[in-house]
């Protein structure tokens, strides 16, 4: 401590320190830009789906130009245990999510009102309100748009598959042999590109509905702002004495399913595994980042206050000792 520091200097500088601290706290509040209650949300009325697969066909057709065109032979992977994931030989596969198939229909044989019945569940990205695939992507290759939808930029993705690990449903699927990694260090880093439903962002920008919604002959899906769709889902659930999936899953998603059968029973009845997502309850995987994140921005203020307090005490002590 500099003994020549006067109380006046200390006070002046304290005010400045406090102002800096106040500005640091106010900034994040201003960065709030989007309102999740307005995020574009789709609602699936599962009681209407007949499993015809028109939506799957429509999705494949509209995204024909967006699926991978891998170059062969694939680069040698170092270390050799890095898995090659190649769906290009099996592009017709519709029974699971793949880089070529962004929407798949699951089947569940369950009892409804005492009768054995098959329910069909169209599955693709849930478009989470706070999507871990986007937030945890180390390069900003996965993005969330203003209307809440999330998608993966195939020009930037390196195929590390962190998004798939971070996604509670492991939705994004990898194709080896495509993308930016081929131009950098193909053997040492990266492994292709991740693909998933992009909610037909291009069609939305042109004022059209996602292709799967328009193609459905049964009107299974509807789309609108989340608040309104939540209301609609609740009304529908009450009407059919049913259940909703997506209200709180992973902190809330912008895909809502309404079913006449509880989701834990559908989850037991469907095939699960790679490319076949479950219907289990999932806690908000971004909860830590949401809660600790706000506290984190206050940490420097604690440090400042502690240091200023210590200096103040030292000064007080010194002034007592000087007669």
């Amino acid at each position: 401590m500099n003994p020549i520091l006067s109380r006046r200097t200390f006070l002046k500088r304290s005010v400045l320190t406090a102002t800096t601290a106040a500005v640091a706290t106010a900034l994040p509040a201003n960065a709030e830009a989007a309102d999740p209650s307005g995020y574009l949300t789709t609602l699936f009325d599962l009681s209407r789906c007949v499993g015809c697969g028109e939506c799957v066909t429509a999705c494949r057709e509209i995204h024909e130009g967006d699926v991978p065109q891998p170059k062969r032979p694939f680069p040698t992977m170092i270390p050799a245990r890095v898995p090659v994931e190649d769906f290009s030989q099996n592009q017709e596969e519709e029974e699971r999510l793949t880089p070529y198939n962004w929407l798949t229909i699951q089947e569940a044989s369950v009892e409804v009102n005492g009768e054995e019945q098959t329910l069909y569940i169209p599955r693709r990205c849930m478009h989470c309100i706070n999507p871990p695939c986007v937030k945890l992507c180390p390069w900003g290759a996965a993005v969330q748009e203003k209307n809440g939808l999330s998608r993966i930029n195939d020009a930037l993705c390196l195929g590390g598959a962190k998004c798939r690990a971070a996604c509670p449903w492991h939705i994004p699927q990898r194709q080896t042999g495509v993308g930016l990694y081929l131009d950098i260090l193909p053997s040492l880093a990266g492994n292709g590109v991740m693909y998933k439903c992009d909610r037909c962002h291009n069609r939305l920008k042109a004022g059209e509905n996602p292709a799967c919604i328009d193609a459905c002959p049964e009107g299974v899906q509807s789309i609108g702002p989340r608040e309104a769709m939540v209301k609609k889902a609740k009304a529908l659930a009450t009407e059919m004495n049913g259940y909703i999936y997506g209200l709180d899953e992973n902190g809330g998603t912008t895909t809502l399913y309404v079913s006449p059968v509880p989701f834990h029973r559908l989850n037991e009845a469907i095939d699960k595994g790679p490319g076949c997502p479950d219907l289990a309850p999932h806690k908000n995987s971004m909860a830590m980042a949401e809660n600790v994140g706000k506290a984190l921005l206050l940490a420097p203020i604690a440090g400042m206050a502690a240091a200023a307090g210590r200096i103040f005490l030292t000064l007080k002590h010194a002034s007592k000792e000087t007669p």
Partner: peptide
């Protein structure tokens, strides 16, 4: 950190 909060667009 701000980006990782809910309802943030960047």
């Amino acid at each position: 950190v701000i980006k990782n909060l809910k309802g943030i667009y960047m």
